[in-house]
Design a protein around this nucleic acid. Sequence first.
DNA 1: AAAGACTCCAACCGCGCAGCG
DNA 2: CCGCTGCGCGGTTGGAGTCTT
Length: 273
Amino acid sequence: MGRQPCCDKLGVKKGPWTTEEDKKLVNFILNNGQCCWRAVPKLAGLLRCGKSCRLRWTNYLRPDLKRGLLTEDEEQLVIDLHARLGNRWSKIAGRLPGRTDNEIKNHWNTHIKKKLIKMGINPATHEPLNKQEADTLKTAASPLTVSQPESEDTMAKTGLVVHTSSPEENLSSTPPENCTSSNESGSTSDNSHEEDPIMRLAWDDEALLDSLSWDFPVPEQSYNNAGEASSAVENGFGWLFEYQDFGVEELDFGFDHVAIDMDINRYLMGDKC
DNA sequence: AAAGACTCCAACCGCGCAGCG
DNA sequence: CCGCTGCGCGGTTGGAGTCTT
């Protein structure tokens, strides 16, 4: 029967977002919270489709986003997580506060992939390339089932260390109470892992991943009251703090109406769960 | 200084899934 | 149970910026 387009193609603007559009979107979300995305463009006065708005918000406008290149530690964690989860960028992103799946995906494709290849590691399987060549296509190895990279030596040489433990060791771990910053609605049910074997595996991975070290600091500048303005400015959110300019007086995140300056602070501190 | 090559990332596209009536 | 709707995810692309010749 054919799927309906997510939005009317006609009259919907595409391409790069303007500052004005950003302001409108942020203004709307700060006023109304994240409601149904389909309605957002109309209500916010944007000629965009809801999907585009959601993407713009989650990947770029969210105040709690950490910007700039991934740190070495984050990169290492991404490699580690990718070895376990494969291209499940959203799951990987869920483990890196302030990072988006898109950002991680991009970073993987542009930096980490090359790095791994240079190190002689197949980025898809995390196995040494020469070994990979040996049993080419013998197994269409699913990322979830691949073994750990055997080349810890290589990793160590380049400063990349994989610290792992087997999933079995962690099956008893309690699932993380993952309070994602962008997604209170949580349409992806956390119970799904109980039904779906793959999701169960992923879930087990998540439990396991809780044991991975987290030595890099949470983007304190994003959660730090004193530094919020400067970091927001650094992040290109200087205008966000000129909220008065676009008429935001009160916020409604679905709980109380509170003064916006207080709430932006709380918001920036990640106090949204 | 100019042109071509390359890199990077924001944004788009299409699919799958969950929820609801 | 079925169809519809909305959301989220992963893959891909276009173009701006940077580097190289």
